[in-house]
Write a protein that binds this DNA or RNA. Structure first.
Lengths: 141, 141
DNA sequence: CTGGGTGCAAAGTATTTGCATGAAC
DNA sequence: GTTCATGCAAATACTTTGCACCCAG
C-alpha cells in the first residue's frame, strides 16, 4: 500500500503492520505526540498497545525514521524525517507548521557554531507565536 | 547577597530562601534539569523538597524568570532568562553553551515567519553537535 | 496580620521493562 | 527456522496535588 515498508527496511527495521500504521498516522497529521499517535492508531488497529507505540517511537527516532519535536510546556511531538525545515508553533491552537529553511539561516548557524569551534550536526529552529488563522479569530482561547 | 531578590520582586514573587537558592544554583551552572537543580540545592538547603523545586520552576517559568530549554532525548533544562541567544548542545558531554544571536538570524526568522503570516513571538534555536572539548578527546564516549 | 510559599506524603501520569507469544524475513 | 516485534501486566520514573504549618511583606 505504501512505501513505508521500504523506508523501514532502509533503516533495518521490520515492516510490521503496527509500524506502518504509526507512520501512516503521523504522515497524515504531520506532528503528533505519543498519546495522539496512540489514539489515532487505535482506530485502524484496536489491539495495538501503548507500549508498542512507545517502543517504536524510540527505535524509529534512534534509526532516524522519526524526528522528535519538543514543544515548550507540552509533550514532544514526532514527525517523519524529511528535508530540513523550521517549525512554526502556535501558542493559541497548538498547531505545528513546517516552513522551508533558507540558505541564509543555514549559513548563519554555521557561522555561529564556528565561533565556538562547535562541530554542528543538526539544527532545531522552532518559532513560537500566533498562526494566521488564530490572528483572525482573536477571540479564541 | 544577590539581586535575585529584586528579580523575584519584579515578577511579583516572594523572595524566599528556597527560590534564591534555586536561582543561585542555576546561575552558577548555567543550564540544569529538575533533578540536577534538586541535587545541587540540597547542599545549601538540605530540607528543601523536590515538590518545591517543581512548583517553583513552574511558577518561575510562567512569570518569565526562567526559560525552559528542551534537550532532544533528555529532560528539559532551565536557565535564567537573559538576553536572547542560541544554544550549542553537545551530544557527547551533554554541555549546553550559550552563543550570541546575531541580527542576520533575527531578520531571517522574521522573514520566514512572515511567509506564513505568522506573528513571531519567540525563537528557539538549538544547535546540536560536538563541542570543541569533545572533539579533542575523540576517544571519550 | 495575611497571603503566598513550603514540605510532606499521597495520588496521578508517563514511561519502561520482562517475558511468553506471534509475525516478518 | 531465527530473529525481531508485539502485547500484556507489572515495575519505575516523573510530576502534581492537598493540606497543615510557616515566613516574607
Amino acid at each position: 500500500m505504501t512505501s513505508f515498508a521500504q523506508l523501514l527496511k532502509e533503516h533495518a527495521l521490520k515492516a510490521t503492520f503496527q509500524r506502518m500504521t504509526i507512520l501512516a498516522v503521523i504522515e497524515r497529521e504531520g506532528h503528533l505526540n505519543v498519546d495522539e499517535i496512540y489514539a489515532q492508531v487505535l482506530e485502524a488497529h484496536p489491539t495495538l498497545s501503548l507500549a508498542t507505540v512507545y517502543k517504536n517511537i524510540i527505535t524509529m527516532v534512534e534509526r532516524g525514521v522519526l524526528v522528535e519535536v519538543p514543544i515548550l510546556g507540552h509533550k514532544s511531538k514526532y514527525e517523519i524525517r524529511k528535508h530540513e525545515h523550521v517549525h512554526l508553533i502556535c501558542h493559541q491552537c497548538g498547531a505545528v507548521m513546517d516552513q522551508a529553511i533558507d540558505d541564509v539561516l543555514i549559513e548563519d548557524t554555521l557561522t555561529i557554531a564556528k565561533q565556538s569551534a562547535f562541530a554542528l550536526e543538526n539544527r532545531q529552529v522552532n518559532l513560537y507565536g500566533v498562526c494566521a488563522g488564530c490572528q483572525e479569530g482573536k477571540a479564541s482561547a
